[in-house]
């Protein structure tokens, strides 16, 4: 195919489809690049800055995020230059100060050989990767979440931080959250997503009485997928 390009990855020549994000190419070749805001189901966002790599093109070296930088002919990509390691380490240290008790962050820092202790701790498990906001918009299509404020007070939340009226309680945000910051709980027939102040009644199976999913979620899917009215009357086991 004529839209194949040749790049080098840490010195090894590789053929790749033009435009493929460098991160995907590296992963395919088992070259480790840490990421915190990447999910294959989402459009690359490039904000955690953990996936930085050094590229050289026409003699000019740059540091770019591999999650969204597209492969192009003649690109030389290096994932572990001194510059990359140094920058990635300070980014890791900044995140470690933000979430110093978060297991995922602590483990990643340890893997990258980054120690904390130099910076004032913030103690916020949300690392602002934005995956919750993006999944709700790009995958679920509900857009119940957005960012509030800017700078250091930026946080993901519902409009006006009020209990969400659009959240369907699907829990996608919980599944994609890399740090476990978003807390969800099913209790006595109600699904709570505490971060969004959401409490949704669960629908029950007309046969076995088991809880299926929040009624609002089932209504939403039925509507968007144009399913029959009684489609979710029964749970998956009873069908």
């Amino acid at each position: 195919m004529d839209d194949m390009v040749t790049i080098t990855l840490n010195g090894t020549e590789i053929k790749a489809q033009k435009g493929t994000p460098l991160l995907s190419i590296a992963r395919e070749k088992n070259v480790y690049i840490p990421t915190l805001c990447h999910n294959d189901a989402l459009v690359p966002y490039g904000v955690c800055r953990m996936c930085l790599v050094e590229i050289e093109k026409g003699g000019r070296k740059r540091i770019v995020t591999s999650c969204n930088y597209p492969a192009e002919e003649g690109l030389a990509v290096k994932t572990d230059t001194e510059r990359v390691v140094k920058t990635r380490s300070i980014v890791m240290e900044l995140l470690l100060a933000r979430a110093p008790e978060n297991k995922m962050i602590v483990d990643l820092a340890a893997r990258l050989g980054v120690k904390g202790g130099r910076l004032t701790e913030v103690n916020d498990d949300c690392i602002l990767c934005g995956m919750c906001v993006r999944v709700c918009d790009e995958v679920v299509g509900v857009s119940a979440l957005g960012f509030f404020s800017r700078g250091t007070s930026r946080m993901p939340t519902t409009p006006f931080a009020e209990p969400s009226e659009t959240c369907i309680g699907c829990g996608s945000c919980v599944y994609v959250c890399p740090t476990g910051y978003i807390k969800m709980e099913d209790k006595d027939g109600t699904r709570y997503i505490h971060n969004w102040k959401v409490a949704l009644k669960m629908a029950t199976c007309k046969k076995c009485g088991m809880y299926i999913a929040p009624q609002r979620q089932l209504d939403y899917i039925r509507k968007t997928a144009d399913l029959p009215e009684d489609f979710y009357d029964l749970c998956f086991s009873c069908r």
């Binding site: 800055r49 980014v91 995140l95 004032t120 934005g130 404020s149 800017r150 250091t152 930026r154």
Partner: peptide, 21 residues
């Protein structure tokens, strides 16, 4: 700048925070 950074990426947001501290 702490107030005016959009806060989207880690180095700018967190870096400015610790700069100020």
């Amino acid at each position: 700048l702490v107030d005016e950074s959009c806060g989207k990426c880690t180095p700018c947001r967190e870096g400015l925070r610790h700069f100020l501290t």
